[in-house]
């Protein structure tokens, strides 16, 4: 995959924008570089009104298959301050594995890229 580091940076930007839009007041992030992939962990609080959108996030991630859209559009990740659905779908396509844990007060995202 070309521009690996740049892609990971853009994913971080996009997820930060998304969590801020979800009303987060505190975001913790951790990026680990491992053999052949990156592991990204995000923890944040959110406003209850946004729970529906966070649940929808599970729909966007964890899609197995080759969809062929990533190479044309990967630069769109993190390109706006909206953190909206279309860019999250793009991240879902760029992610090998995703685990999303949602509690009443906090969301935890674990991605393998």
């Amino acid at each position: 995959m070309r521009h690996n580091k740049k892609r990971v940076i853009k994913i971080c930007e996009e997820l930060t924008a998304f969590l801020l839009r979800m009303g987060a007041t505190e975001i913790e992030s951790k990026l680990q570089r491992e053999a052949g992939h990156y592991r990204l962990t995000y923890r944040a609080d959110y406003t209850p009104a946004c729970r529906g959108e966070l649940e929808e996030l599970k729909e966007y991630f964890n899609r197995s298959g080759r969809f062929g859209a990533v190479e044309e559009y990967w630069e769109l990740a993190g390109s706006s301050d909206m953190g909206d659905g279309s860019e999250l779908l793009l991240i879902g396509m760029m992610t090998e594995q995703a685990d999303i844990q949602l509690t009443d007060a906090q969301v935890e995202l674990k991605l393998m890229i």
């Binding site: 729909e59 966007y60 899609r63 969809f67 859209a69 559009y73 769109l76 909206d84 659905g85 279309s86 860019e87 779908l89 793009l90 879902g92 396509m93």
Partner: peptide
């Protein structure tokens, strides 16, 4: 309800 901004893949959404 979607803006349609790329990538808005309606099959996934």
């Amino acid at each position: 309800r979607h803006s349609g901004r790329a990538i808005a893949d309606f099959v996934f959404m």
